[in-house]
């Protein structure tokens, strides 16, 4: 049976930085308690109440990074609509309510000695915590980050702390020109691929991983209501039928998916 360790609590924004056009990095600390008590795993997410009733339901956001020493959680947010915009506009010191930590994370036991972590756009978010954790386990991952242009390459300096960083931009203003799927780093051999980004990108990477017989996990972003497996709104078709992305995912091995 599942072990219960979810909580609801207020977090204070210690720093809110616009790191690119339409992207903010929020650093938050819990008003009460220690994050280290929650055993947060890379790939898990939070459900956030958006400020000033910008939205009716909470919004799911990946845990980008956990700094246990500073008792700090990072969220990387793209302004997609009312809720995410309201979050990005919050001043330092503001308090937001979160349910955390939700879902199953990435399977680190499968990483092997040379995993490749591929992120597109805001999908790079959960890969930072994953890279840091792999590093703590003595593994040096390779990162492949995709963005529209140089100014949208997110958190590259942070990723560089944990492994080599490769970049693809659509306009070629940084790294290789094109999509991550054509980056030459994909010609190298990797023990495992972890991927998060837009759906077409994840599907293309899954196809490449299958061709190369490299195990591959992807993190899905299905629209959610509850985030805790109660409403069955967020389902994905899998080999085991419709399952809740919020509870059985958001990370899935591509062998579980029907794509």
């Amino acid at each position: 049976m599942e072990k219960y360790n979810k909580r609801m609590g207020d977090f204070r924004i210690t720093e809110n930085a616009a790191i690119a056009e339409n992207y903010s990095l929020l650093k938050l600390i819990p008003v009460e308690g220690l994050l280290s008590d929650s055993a947060i795993r890379p790939g898990q997410f939070v459900q956030v109440v958006t400020p000033n009733n910008a939205t009716y339901l909470r919004r799911p956001i990946s845990i980008c990074y956990i700094d246990n020493d500073a008792n700090e959680m990072w969220l990387l947010i793209r302004k997609a609509g009312d809720g995410t915009r309201a979050l990005c506009d919050q001043p330092n010191g503001a308090t937001i309510n979160m349910i955390y930590s939700l879902g199953n994370g990435f399977d680190l036991s499968e990483a092997g000695s040379s995993p490749l972590l591929i992120g597109g756009g805001v999908g790079v978010a959960p890969l930072l915590n994953l890279g840091a954790e792999l590093n703590r386990q003595g593994i040096k991952p390779t990162f492949l980050l995709g963005a529209r242009s140089a100014k949208d390459v997110l958190l590259a300096e942070e990723f560089a702390k944990y492994g080599d960083v490769h970049v693809s931009t659509e306009d070629g203003s940084a790294g290789e020109k094109g999509l991550v799927t054509t980056n030459t780093i994909l010609n190298s051999e990797f023990t495992h691929i972890y991927c998060c980004g837009p759906m077409p990108m994840m599907k293309a990477i899954a196809k490449i991983a299958r061709e190369k017989s490299t195990p591959c996990e992807v993190s899905l972003e299905n629209v959610m209501a509850c985030g805790v497996g109660a409403c069955l709104c967020c389902v994905e078709k899998t080999t085991a039928g419709n399952v809740c992305v919020c509870k059985e995912g958001p990370v899935f091995n591509i062998d579980q998916l029907l794509w």
Partner: peptide, 15 residues
């Protein structure tokens, strides 16, 4: 899927 969309002060579901 999709089974849910937020609407003003509510949501539509089709579970």
């Amino acid at each position: 899927y999709p089974r849910m969309v937020e609407t003003p002060s509510g949501m539509l579901n089709a579970v």
